[in-house]
Structure formats: structure tokens, C-alpha cells
Computed example of a mutant assay.
Amino acid sequence: MLGLVVALVYVNQVLFTVYVLRVHGGDVTFVSRYLPEGWFALADGPGMRAVAERVPWPELLAPSVLRVQAFLELPLVMLAYVTVLRWLDRGLYRRVADSWIVWAASLSYTFVFCVVEWGLWNPYTTEDIVIRVCAALVTPPLVQWLARRDGDGPRVSSLAQMLVFAVSVWALGHLVLTVYDTALLYNLAHLGGRLPGALVAVVALVAARLAAGRLPDGEPGRASATVANALRYALVLFLVPALAVRYGPNVGSPLLAAAAGLLVCGAAAALTLRESLAGAGRNRTVLWCGQTFAALLAGGLAGYAAVRAVTDVYYEAGLLRGAAVCFVAAVVVCALTDRLIGEERSVTGAA
């Protein structure tokens, strides 16, 4: 379903380009003057112009200007998020999708989108807000319907599964950022430059998902289980405020957004700490603290190096790369130290 939504986003981009070429002579100032710089890089080459000339009644494509995207943006974001949760823990994904949390997330994201719309006031704003409210009512039932049709699946636990999960999330995040730049900002002309990286991400994603279905389950040690549990808690707790935290520095209060992010991290850490140290004796607790410190240090240094290694057009790309590398480094340290302690168990069966 996520792929279908992405396809519809790009179909709308083509229709938007046809509309601008045929109705406005290729001039996007009728809408671009209301929005910040960095939007509306029109793909108006010979091929696109040839397509545009063959489309009848181009005036009917007027809704392709902002309004179609206003409906598709919420399902795109929510489906991408729950896809990550599904990869991590199929059972948890189904429980969350079938709960009030998806409705709360839908309302939260829609509120943020509407605040952004209001801040970028233009002749389409009122219609866009109404359309976004409609999307907020439609998207949660869609997510729930998909979850109820889903079957059982593995829960990420072993080192190999966590590494494949990290690759999957990085690749999906890279593709979402590509869609954001080339489609949600109406920059279809950027697609050529983004295509090589997007193809690498597609190959990595397909390979990772194929591998995920073939990896055996394992019994992780205490430190490795801590990382997996922390990720589960963080993804669930972050689901509702995610977009508010993302846009807080731009349209709200940076301090409030930072506080919300830290609150989520703190709550996830507290819940993880309680679960991870349940039944642990004094000596094991001390060892766990050492493992956790080593993992955080290694992950932090590796993530910082990954962020600084490349200058990105969008800072989210650097954060995504840094988070993925940080996660990989942390889980490797945890798995190795668990094995040294003799706590990690051997593989128990196929996933």
C-alpha cells in the first residue's frame, strides 16, 4: 500500500507538470510566489512536453496543484512509520494499529500539517485544510484494515536481524526523503540527480527484506535485548508526537520540540531499564551498565562520524544516516559483549 501511495504522488506530479505546461505555459509563479524557495523545479524537457501535448482537457488537472498532495501526505507518512514498526515486531505493529494510537497520530499529524498550511497561506489553503481533515478520517481505518489482514511474522531479536532491520530503515528513509524533495515539494526536475541514490536504496531495501525472511531467530543476551526493547518502546511512544517534534523547530518552538523529544526518549529509557534489569543480580547489573556505556559511546562516535562525513541537502538525511550507523555500532557492541559474557544463546530455529 505504501508503494501505491508513492506511485499516486508521482502520477500527480506528472499531471501537475502537464497542467502547468498547458494552462500556464510552463510558468509556475501563479503558485510559487506564495511558497518559500526550493519548490517547483519543473521537469519540462522534450519528453514531458510531448506527453503534455497529448493530454486532453488539461484544465481539469487543476486539483493537482497542492490539493491532491494534501490528501496523500498523511497516508504516506503514517504508512511509512507503521511499516518500520511492522519490520521490527509484527505482533506489536498489529496491536498498535488496532488501537486508539493510530487515531491520535492521525489527528496530531493533521494538526501539524494544518499549522504549516496556515503559515504558508495561499489561495488553496482553505481547501487544503479541509482535504487534510478528510485524510485524517480515512487514514486510520486504512492502517487498521491492512494490519488486520496481515499475518504473523518474526520479531527482531538476533544480531543479524537487527542489522538487516537497520539497513531496511535507512533505505526506506532515504526513499521517503527522495519523495519529499522530488514530489512533495514539486521538484520533479530533481529526480534525475536523486535517481542513482534512490536505486541504491531500492536494491538495499529489497535485499534486506528478502534476507529478513530467511534469518533464523536467536536468544539475545541482556544487552542486545535492551537495544531491541528500547527501540520498540521508542517507536510506539514517538508515533503520536513524531511530526510535531519534526516541525517544531520550523513552525513552533524549538525548545518545546526538543523537550518533547527528550521526554519520549526518557520514557522509553525508563521502561527499557525496568524490563532489562528485571531479575538481574548485582554483578550482572554492573556488567550491563558497562556494556550499555560501551555501546552508547561506540554508537555515538560512529553516528557523529557518519553525520559529519557528508554534507546533505536536507539535515534529515544526515540524521538518518547517523542514526542507522549509531544503531549498528551499538548492537554490534552489545552482541559481542553478550557473547564474551557467555549470555547470548545459539540459534533456535528459522524465522
Results as ranks from 00 to 15, higher is better:
L320F: 01
W145S: 15
A280D: 15
Q69L: 14
A302M: 02
A160E: 12
A211G: 04
L92P: 10
V133Y: 11
A260T: 14
L107F: 05
L239Q: 04
P241I: 07
L76D: 03
I101C: 10
P196Y: 00
V115G: 02
R22E: 12
T311S: 10
V82H: 11
A41K: 13
G91I: 02
N250T: 10
G303I: 00
V102P: 10
V169S: 10
V328T: 08
F30G: 07
G45P: 08
G192F: 05
L297D: 00
V251A: 08
V156N: 13
A207V: 12
A335Q: 02
R214L: 15
A258H: 06
V116F: 10
T139C: 11
V28Q: 09
V310L: 05
M48I: 14
T226A: 12
V202W: 04
A242I: 05
P141Q: 07
N229V: 13
A302K: 01
W100R: 15
R282K: 09
V133D: 04
L79T: 11
V164Y: 06
T226K: 03
L175V: 07
A223S: 15
L184E: 12
V227K: 05
R94I: 02
D181P: 05
P254L: 04
V116G: 11
L15K: 07
R94K: 06
V307S: 09
G197I: 00
S168P: 07
V264F: 01
I101M: 13
V28K: 10
W118Y: 12
T125W: 08
G213T: 01
I129H: 02
L88C: 11
P140T: 06
L60V: 14
E316M: 04
L42V: 01
T29M: 05
G303S: 04
R214F: 11
M162E: 13
Q13N: 14
A201C: 06
R232T: 08
M1A: 11
T29S: 14
S108F: 02
L210Y: 05
Y304Q: 14
V169Y: 05
A62Y: 03
L79C: 09
A43R: 14
A350E: 15
L15R: 01
Y180M: 15
A267L: 15
A166Q: 01
G153K: 07
A50I: 13
F111I: 03
H24D: 15
V169H: 06
V28C: 06
V203G: 06
L88V: 09
A212C: 01
L146A: 14
W121R: 13
P220V: 08
V84D: 09
G281F: 04
G26W: 03
G266Q: 05
G261S: 08
F165G: 06
A183E: 02
V203L: 12
A268E: 00
L199K: 01
R339Y: 05
H174M: 13
G197R: 00
G38M: 00
A225S: 14
A201E: 06
G218V: 07
Y315T: 11
G193F: 02
C326Q: 08
W288F: 15
A335L: 04
W118E: 15
L301D: 03
S108G: 06
V202D: 06
A306K: 03
V51T: 07
P196H: 01
L239K: 04
W100M: 09
Q69Y: 12
P154F: 04
S106D: 00
A208W: 03
L74C: 10
P241T: 08
A295I: 02
